[in-house]
Design a protein around this nucleic acid. Structure first.
Length: 497
RNA sequence: GCCCCCAUCGUCUAGUGGCCCAGGACAUAGCCCUCUCAAGGCUAAAACCGGGGUUCGAGUCCCCGUGGGGGCACCA
């Protein structure tokens, strides 16, 4: 396996316009894996050149999400580094300088066309079934004209001058060479009339200046990829390795996640945003594993990976260029796997907040026992209170309907409860070893199935149809509670006829 | 409409010309285990988009078609 020998400097460069979602998290994860595998650096850069869409809360959300995933940046706004500042709004001058350089070399030009005019041109072109593109009006302006119009205070942008003849070939690590006709390339805006750079310039300048070796980004950048390479070349820079990740599709495979799908998923208990993962009962180990496998695979067998495994085994070569539909039921599966992989003390700590939120105050010893009883039956942490909350209750409310049926009437049930009570009272310690056989014998004696006795007991102790194993429950609630609950159940059943 | 990318079970995928009458996982169904629910074990059903090439031989290479996705902003 050819691993990247050179330490990779990789950047995760989100735009602070909302919450970090699964797709962004995947990019960040791959960035982290590549950086750590090669002993390079994982850089966080905030791309906030669009003040209209800016959301202040975003940066904290990204930070929190990465922290939760356990993938901290090595360099970034918070941790600093030798290539800062790491926030693009603080690098405006740098982009301007490079835009000027491109103008001087003839690779960019000033453009005074108004937004209205541009829109009109686009409408025309669309009507004629052409690809909307800049019509080149300002390409031939003389330096004098330009100086004059700037002097007059006319707003302007700086556009890249895309070549209009020939072809451009760029190389994506997953797809190989991609060649386009230069005639299909547009004169992209580099500097907006507000003086700020747009992505096409800012990201290229930063990637170069920050010595990024691998640009890992979503495939929505494929159409403008040639422009980006051309900007690098126009500046005389050596290109990084380009990796365009496949898009993540919604679960039915039809299109990428939209706002509506996001809400639908939420209603069904599935998270799209990383911030929701924890509240929805998912643990980061599982989420990382799950996310890593959407668009990447290791071999034909292995699917369970810890973060460390991933750092060790990740490789760009095994990335899959085709779009992948999100599969939430697989997330549930991985969550179960990773929960079971936790050691019991760790699991106990993870479930503690859930019981606390429900108003219980579990002692360490009790919590540890509960953990042992429910760990391998937990898929999402959201379930733990439903499964084990009754253990904290003063009393449980039994359902007679679940006990009494045409195979077992109330009188028999009451009798059975009484017998169970006698058996337990006669035992110095109620454990599986010394109680199971007597219970089974009781069932045989009463011509009942063992399941009926255990079902009755379960209802008496838990007030639930489903619960952890009875002999796991008993030591947790203790002998006194066990006896009194059985007695209560017997009393209730005894009053029915 | 134009440009670009992609194409193996319902879904995620293995497969880099013979090891593939295609392997694994999720989900689904059945069975076993079993005090319930899980977990675990076993089994079943389930795919190489179509057509042309190249080759002794194609899921694997090439072309065309079709389908899916992405993009076409002074957003990223």
């Amino acid at each position: 396996m050819s691993k990247t020998i050179v330490p990779a400097r990789v950047r995760f460069a989100p735009s602070p316009t909302g919450y970090l979602h699964i797709g962004g998290a995947r990019t960040a994860l791959y960035d982290y894996l590549l950086a750590h595998q090669t002993g390079g650096a994982f850089v966080l850069r905030i791309e906030d050149t669009d003040q209209k869409r800016y959301q202040e809360s975003s940066e904290a959300d990204f930070k929190g999400a990465l922290e939760w995933m356990g993938i901290q940046p090595d360099e970034g706004p918070e941790q600093g580094g030798n290539y800062g500042p790491y926030i693009q709004s603080q690098r405006t001058e740098i982009y301007r300088d490079h835009a000027e350089k491109l103008v001087e070399s003839g690779n960019a030009f000033y453009c005074f066309c108004s937004a209205e005019k541009l829109a009109a041109i686009r409408d025309e072109q669309t009507k004629r079934n052409e690809t909307p593109h800049y019509d080149g009006t300002c390409r031939a302006l003389t330096p004098e004209e330009i100086a004059e119009r700037i002097e007059k205070g006319e707003p302007y942008v700086i556009r890249f001058r895309a070549p209009d003849e020939g072809k451009t070939t760029v190389t994506d690590l997953l797809r190989g060479d991609i060649t386009v006709d230069n005639s299909t390339l547009d004169d992209m805006v580099l500097i907006k009339s507000d003086g700020l750079a747009v992505y096409h310039l800012a990201a290229m300048v930063d990637d170069h200046l920050m010595e990024i070796t691998h640009v890992v980004r979503g495939s929505e950048w494929l159409p403008t990829f040639p422009i980006h390479a051309l900007i690098y070349r126009a500046l005389g820079w050596h290109e990084p390795f380009w990796v365009h990740l496949s898009v993540l599709l919604k679960p039915d495979g039809k299109g990428k996640m939209s706002k509506r799908d996001t809400e639908l998923a939420r209603e069904q208990g599935y998270p799209i945003f990383m911030k929701d993962m924890n509240d929805m009962g998912y643990i980061p180990e599982a989420v990382n594993n799950w996310i890593a496998l959407m668009g990447w695979s290791y071999d034909d067998k292995t699917e369970f990976f810890t973060l460390d495994d991933l750092v060790d085994k990740f490789s760009l070569e095994k990335l899959n260029p085709s779009p992948a539909a999100i599969n939430f039921s697989k997330l549930d599966h991985f969550n179960g796997l990773h929960i079971r992989n936790l050691d019991q003390a760790d699991f106990a700590n993870r479930i503690r907040p859930w019981f606390e939120k429900a108003g219980y105050a579990p002692e360490d010893e009790i919590l540890h026992q509960i953990a042992g009883a429910i760990q391998n039956r937990t898929k999402k942490l959201t379930e733990v209170v439903d499964m084990a909350g009754f253990l904290f209750h003063e009393n449980v409310e039994i359902s007679v309907d679940r006990i009494v049926n045409d195979k077992l009437n109330a009188a028999q049930a009451a009798e059975a409860a009484g017998k169970i009570l006698e058996i337990f009272q006669g035992l110095p310690e109620i454990s599986q070893e010394n109680a199971e056989t007597p219970l089974r014998n009781l069932a045989a004696e009463m011509e009942l199935k063992a399941g009926q006795i255990f079902g009755l007991l379960r209802e008496a102790l838990a007030g639930q149809k489903v619960s952890p194993p009875i002999f796991d429950i008993i030591p947790i609630i203790g002998r006194e509670v066990v006896l009194s609950r059985i007695k209560d159940a017997g009393d209730i059943l005894g009053k029915i006829n």
